[in-house]
């Protein structure tokens, strides 16, 4: 493996470590699964194929059967589409919006900062469950609606954290110098602020990703988003929780799937090549 990392390092000029590479591989694996899932599921995702329930791993059902006797492997493979797709979409949108507004608020300051901050604070204090229910009642449910709802729930937190970081950087001498040079707001946030807060912002991105993966299952139980027979991974864990006392594969493997994805995303962020993570000299 070290040979591989060295090879990539020589070819690309990026210094990559083993943990980062493994994490990237896991993420890539799930991304591919998400794309080709319908082609590789051994059984239809909603079909009851085993008369037993919470069945053990066997040659017919590699990861056992769930609480109804459906094939867990097929359900996890199809679930990857929703968990990976929706979560990545939502977390990217939420962090992009939150961080951009946060930096803008820090750099522009004054009334803009005040109004935006107070507005998002107020928004953030509305319970997310109530918000979810209103969304379903008002516009119905679909995957884009789900992504936007999750974005709306998580963007204010991202804003607050990014703003707190950016405000500190904004008082630094090099920003004052740049401002004195007459640089525009866009230049300031892109060239001076962002590179200096990118580390914590990425860490925040990773955590928010985990939260979204987990919240997703809660929202599908509100009737928002992933519809039967499909289910996201969190929902798979939830619907099979009665199997926990027997350590049923139906509850263990979806948990592994969640952990493998969320840990990989966070480990990859922690182990990004220095060249990307750090402010350029």
């Amino acid at each position: 493996m070290t040979a591989v990392t060295n090879f990539i390092a020589r070819k690309s000029g990026y210094n990559i470590n083993l943990v980062g590479l493994c994490s990237a591989t896991v993420i890539l694996f799930w991304a591919i699964v998400a794309l080709i899932a319908p082609m590789i599921t051994p059984y239809p995702v909603g079909e009851i194929v085993d008369w037993d329930y919470f069945g053990p791993s066997s040659s017919a059902f590699w990861l056992g059967s769930d609480y109804l006797g459906r094939d867990v492997l097929s359900r996890i493979l199809m679930g990857a589409r929703f968990t990976v797709g929706i979560s990545l979409g939502a977390v990217t949108l939420a962090c992009f919006i939150g961080v951009t507004l946060g930096m803008l608020a820090a750099v522009i300051g004054g009334l803009f900062d005040q109004v935006l901050s107070r507005f998002l604070d107020a928004f953030n204090s509305i319970p997310s469950k109530l918000f979810g229910l209103v969304v379903v009642a008002a516009v119905g449910s679909s995957v884009p609606v789900l992504i936007l709802t999750l974005t709306a729930i998580y963007a204010p937190g991202s804003y607050r954290f990014a703003r707190a970081l950016a405000v500190n950087i904004n008082t630094m001498d090099f920003v004052t110098v740049a401002r004195a040079r007459g640089e525009g707001t866009l230049y300031l946030i892109k060239e001076e602020i962002l590179p200096n807060i990118i580390g914590p912002v990425l860490a925040d991105f990773g955590l928010r990703f985990v939260f979204i993966v987990l919240l997703l299952s809660g929202l599908s139980f509100l009737g928002l988003g992933v519809l039967p027979p499909n289910a996201d991974w969190g929902a798979l864990v939830k619907e099979n929780i009665s199997g926990l006392p027997f350590a049923a594969p139906a509850v263990i493997y979806p948990s592994f799937a969640i952990a493998s994805l969320t840990i990989s995303v966070n480990m990859m962020i922690d182990n990004l090549p220095k060249k990307i993570r750090d402010r350029e000299d």
Binding site: F211, K238, S255, A259, T262
Partner: peptide, 15 residues
């Protein structure tokens, strides 16, 4: 510490 914290939050709260 870093790995353990991510692992811990990756497990759903109800679990």
């Amino acid at each position: 510490v870093s790995t353990a914290t991510v692992m811990i939050i990756s497990v759903p709260e109800f679990m």
